[in-house]
Design a protein around this nucleic acid. Structure first.
Length: 176
DNA sequence: ATAGCGATGTTCT
DNA sequence: GAACATCGCTATA
């Protein structure tokens, strides 16, 4: 897994699809299978939070591969990324959606509904109990981990959602 | 089904 | 002061 995360961010993004995202946060186990991600390529990517260099918010992006980067979106939601590439590269994969497979009851309670439990980056973090306190933890050894095998199905690439810079790069990957 | 809008922390101008 | 890697409610059709 570390080899995948330490490699080029586009390969890491594709290779993360289909894997299990396992949360042990709050004393309950919740698991989803990743179905939608986006790649952000550090200083080379105008749409990346790291494009303008190191800030207090994005500091964990500059750590080693496998670091979790959690930030607040629109002042309201938490969104999470897995840092990829060598330390200091500040590339990361935004986790946007997953299919719930375990801990459905807990995720339903956290979300306050039983449909689309983990679709959308803000909803995914909420379902799994991820928030700012998990920023900087490791997805290999921390309370939110990634494991399992990569997708066997078809991966479709398309433009990233909700950005205004580098709109033409097809760096959103969805599992069909 | 689609459109408009409010919420509001962090960063940037 | 404005923009932003979003979401769910409300209104119109």
């Amino acid at each position: 897994m570390i080899d995948l995360l330490a490699g080029p961010v586009l390969e890491a993004a594709r290779g993360l699809l289909g894997r299990r995202l396992v949360s042990d946060i709050g004393g309950a186990r919740c698991v989803v299978v990743l179905t939608e991600v986006e790649a952000y390529d550090g200083a080379d990517d105008p749409a990346s939070h790291a494009f303008g260099g190191l800030t207090r918010r994005n500091a964990s992006m500059f750590e080693g591969p496998g670091t979790l980067y959690v930030y607040r979106s629109y002042g309201v939601h938490w969104c999470m990324n897995i840092v990829c590439g060598p330390p200091g590269r500040a590339s990361a994969v935004l986790l946007r959606a997953g299919t719930p497979v375990e801990g459905i009851e807990v995720m339903t309670r956290r979300r306050g509904r039983n449909e689309r439990l983990a679709s959308g980056p803000g909803n995914l973090t909420k379902a799994l109990g991820v928030s700012g306190e998990h920023d900087g933890t490791s997805v290999l050894t921390g309370p939110l981990r990634i494991d399992g095998e990569p997708a066997t199905g078809t991966i479709v690439a398309s433009p990233r959602i909700g950005i205004s810079q580098a709109v033409e790069r097809p760096w959103r990957f969805v599992l069909r």
